[in-house]
């Protein structure tokens, strides 16, 4: 059942994040499987985005260790390396709850920026760009090709030269994912990718995420409030409440976990214990029969 424990791409161990007196995340440990879509869920204020911010270098965690195990065997301690290297060396990419595209740049340029490091190297820090050195032109062409492929995948090829800010909301969301993917990540972190999308767009997004897992062999870690979406596509769900992990397992397990139900519906602690006891009895009976 817990295949993510065997060969995790990301291991979070004893992560604690305090803001002054507020403990946003408290001693959290979980694994993200290499070929899984992992969902991080929980009620508002549970600390999900804080976890993301720690993983992607926005915050330096108060305590704990976050290890990224790349498929080439190298490991990176994400809490120690500068943020621009997280994308470049550790191959972790992310999107935000609110859209953060470069609005004044074209759709294509947004995807080109994500391939910045390779282009800088091949163009000798842009000196080659001015004089049109051939290796630069070649790699520029390759980047444009890659960007174009992504634009075709997210169905935005017709708008490649429009400013990103002019796109409708749903398209901007998809463009953000494509941009994150253009950094060649091995782990893609999405903060509420389905927020504000209509059901049809959410379906498209599910398809896109599955194709990212299968075609691009990229692990996906996502925060989401749309439960039907989470349950549909996730291989592994981690539930947070008040900064503490309350459940961890596959979608079916989490859905029936009394702690999760209690956290979402809000019941007293002793009721949870009762429910747990009942569940145990039920399980035991199930085994007997």
């Amino acid at each position: 059942m817990s295949s993510w424990k065997e060969n995790p791409i990301l291991t979070v161990e004893h992560l604690t994040m305090r803001f002054g007196g507020l403990v946003a995340v408290d001693d959290l440990s979980f694994e993200v499987g290499r070929s899984d879509i992992t969902a991080l869920i929980g009620p508002n204020g549970a600390g999900k985005t804080t976890v993301f911010n720690c993983v992607t270098g926005f915050y330096k965690p108060t305590e704990g260790r976050i290890t990224m195990n790349r498929s080439n065997g190298q490991s990176y301690l994400l809490e120690r390396i500068p943020d621009f290297q997280i994308a470049h060396h550790a191959k972790v990419a992310r999107t935000f709850q609110n859209i953060r595209l470069f609005g004044g740049m074209t759709v294509l340029e947004n995807l080109m920026i994500a391939q910045h490091n390779k282009l800088m190297k091949d163009s000798l820090f842009s000196i080659g760009g001015i004089f049109g050195i051939s290796s630069f032109r070649k790699s520029e062409k390759a980047s444009v090709k890659k960007a174009t492929e992504w634009l075709e995948r997210i169905d935005l090829i017709d708008r490649a030269d429009d400013p990103a800010a002019d796109l409708p909301y749903g398209d901007q969301r998809r463009l953000e994912i494509a941009r994150a993917m253009c950094t060649n990540p091995e782990l893609l972190c999405l903060d509420e990718p389905a927020a504000g999308l209509n059901p049809r767009e959410t379906q498209d997004l599910n398809g896109l995420l599955r194709s990212i897992r299968e075609l691009d062999k990229t692990a996906v870690l996502l925060i989401e409030h749309d439960m039907s979406m989470v349950m549909e596509i996730s291989d592994h769900v981690v539930v947070l409440d008040y900064g503490v992990k309350i459940s961890d397992g596959d979608a079916a397990f989490v859905q029936n976990d009394p702690h999760v139900i209690a956290a979402y519906l809000g019941v007293d602690d002793d009721e949870v214990d009762e429910a747990e006891a009942e569940a145990k009895v039920a399980n035991a009976e199930g085994v007997k029969s």
Binding site: T56, D83, F84, A87, R100, F102, E109, I113, A114, H116
Partner: peptide, 17 residues
Amino acid sequence: RAQRACEQDQKMASLLG
């Protein structure tokens, strides 16, 4: 391009490498 990106959103630019 990197300069224009940093102009708009430095943090995002650094997250893209």
